[in-house]
Structure formats: structure tokens, C-alpha cells
Amino acid sequence: MTAGHGLCAHEVSFAAGDKRILDRVSVCVEPGELVAVVGPNGAGKSTLLKLLAGDLAPQAGEIVLNAKPLRGWNAAERALQRAVLPQSPSLAFAFRAWDVVELGRHPHQGRASATEHHDAVHGAMDAADVARFAARDWRSLSGGEAHRTHFARALAQLWAPLADGRARFLLLDEPTASLDLFHQHAILARAYGIAEAGAGVLAVLHDLNLASAYADRIIVLSEGCVAAEGTPSAALTGDVVTKVWRVPCEIASDAATGRPVVAVRRATTPPFAARLAAE
């Protein structure tokens, strides 16, 4: 595997106690692409994201960021090159939404002018559709609004390309979980736009159709291993979905884009009812 300008996991393994969570997984995000990681609960998606973010260190294998091992970059350098949107962001104290987004500028303190900071915060708030909440106490925002505010913070962190041309990466852990239909698509369209602008984006997603609609590449994780990987049509086949998620389904094709659309059939025997009947 080449160690070019990407954010890559090489043969990483991670176990919590006896439980093996990831087993020799290799994953790469290149600049300019949106990669979706999908898989059932407990497949190791969030752990993979934490390894790529540097929150956890792999017990075997290595994470490489822009051609250098991740542990070789210090915290400040990492922050210039990648932003992370956690699954359920929280915040102590009554900061206003503007202040929350401004926190994303922390890595750039002393590197950018006040105008650049302001433009980045403002632009990021517009992009995440939260500009009208700017002066509000973030605790008064709804779950979805707060989540979008933190998305704006991640955008502000990666707002401008780095002077030395190093690639930037955005890691999103279930970014659509608390959002309504409009904002689910809005946030992924924005993430896609960021990838088009040259950054690498990796998003952990549950909704296969959202992944199919926006991802350049999909990685299917199952029980700590990569079960399938490729373009949406290559990764989301009927066989893969049925085997990995254990649901009967049909794969249609989107009339406009040709991307797969997964239609899950109603389960004929509800699992609980079946178990009750068996007992």
C-alpha cells in the first residue's frame, strides 16, 4: 500500500480486554474523496474512527497521516490536518453557538489574522446552516441544531488549505444520527463539497442509502474485518447486505445516478415473536 498523501490505517488491530474489535483492518482515505464506513452495531466502526483520529493507539499495525506515522505528529500538527465530529458532542459552561464554532480556530491561533478567523467562523456557520443561532446559548439549541453547530466547528477548523499543501481530513462519526431528512442530506452534501474541494472525508454512517448517494467509496465493516469495499454499486450488493446485516433486501438502482438503493423487506417473522413461540 502506498504511503502518499492520505489518512491510512495499515493492518490495524484493536482489542478491549478479550474482545477483539478490529482485526488487521486496512483502510485509506485519499484527499478529494468521501469514504463511508458502514456496518452493523459492534462491527468496530467507531473504534476505527478513534484510531484514525488518534484517540486510541492500535495494538498492532499503524496509522499514517500525510506520509508520516500519526504518532509522529504532535497534537497541534494533527489539529491542522484533521478535524473530528464526535457522535454526541457536549460542552461544559454556557458558551454561545458562535463561541463553539470559534473553538475550531484553536489550532490556527497565531497563524491566521483576526479577519481570517472571523471569515472562517462565519463561513462555517453559514455552511452548516447555523448562522442564525450565533448569539444563542448553545444549551438552548435542539439536539440537531447543536450537532450542526459542532459540524460548523469542524468546518472552521479545516476552513482554509494549509500553506504547505498538506491534505486535510474530516472524520465524521454518525453525523446524520440526530438530524431531520433535510439536514441529513444537507450535511452530507456539504461533506461531499469539502471532498470536492480537496479534503479527504470519512463518515461513519448507518443509513446505507445515504452512504450510497454521497460516498465515492464504501467500506463495509463486519465483526472487526472489512467485508466489502469499493464504489457503492460494488460494495452494496444484495449478498453483502443480506449476509452482513442479516436482513432480506432488494437492491434497486437510482434512476438519476445509477447508485444502488437498498430496500429492506419486512421481516416475515419478528425475531422476538419467533423466540417466544419457540419457548
Partner: peptide, 15 residues
């Protein structure tokens, strides 16, 4: 300020 987000998040911001 960054630490108010949590320790992991402050780390993501370079603290």
C-alpha cells in the same frame, strides 16, 4: 475553552 468540549475533543483541536 477547548477543554470545555471534552478531553478527546480538546485533543482533536491540538491541545
Amino acid at each position: 475553552d477547548a477543554l470545555a468540549l471534552g478531553e478527546a475533543e480538546a485533543g482533536h483541536l491540538g491541545v
